[in-house]
């Protein structure tokens, strides 16, 4: 029998939780444009350093394993910096945020495909059969997935005060 109450579905509850988390005052410090851009540069820097370590010290698997863990806090902070617009379902966003999300995904499609092509070419050039290619493949996939949030973090203007 269908549920006739107005109880939110678990999906709506999940969307609401994401919205509340990404808009909490605790994460506001990440939402300044300067910080957002530093986080994007940090993620690009992380990718370069992880790959340099993997290529120069392929036997130090533990070292790039530890470096790889840095991906998760960086990506979380980038998502916080854009108020989770790329993560929150469309139904829980307002009309402008929905447009911003759609534009970010559309805009990152071309860059994502190009980046994947460049990475594929680089892997083919350096020989794609060694353990040193793993950080490039894993990190590359991670960056391509995060591209919409990275583009937003880089491009959005500084935010205005809620009380103004």
């Amino acid at each position: 029998m269908p549920d006739k109450t107005n109880k939110p579905s678990s999906y709506d509850a999940y969307a609401q939780t994401l919205k509340t988390t990404f808009n909490s005052p605790m994460v506001e410090k990440f939402q300044k444009r300067k910080i957002r851009r530093l986080l994007v540069l940090g993620l690009v820097g992380w990718f370069i350093v992880t790959n340099l370590v993997a290529f120069n010290f392929p036997h130090l698997i533990w070292a790039w394993g530890i470096l790889f863990l840095g991906f998760f806090p960086l990506v979380s902070m980038i998502n916080m910096s854009v108020r989770g617009v790329t993560e929150i379902p469309l139904g829980a966003l307002d009309e402008r945020q929905g447009q911003v999300k759609s534009k970010a995904f559309l805009g990152s499609y071309v860059q994502g495909v190009s980046l994947a092509g460049i990475l594929g070419f680089m892997i083919a050039r350096v020989g794609g059969d060694g353990p040193h290619t793993l950080p490039m493949i894993a990190g590359g996939i991670g960056i391509v997935i995060c591209l919409p949030a990275m583009l937003l973090a880089w491009n959005l203007p500084d935010e205005l005060d809620a009380e103004g």
Partner: peptide
């Protein structure tokens, strides 16, 4: 801005 946003049902940044 926050109060206006609540009235209109949108985010205050909008």
């Amino acid at each position: 801005r926050k109060e206006m946003a609540d009235i209109l049902g949108i985010h205050y940044q909008t």
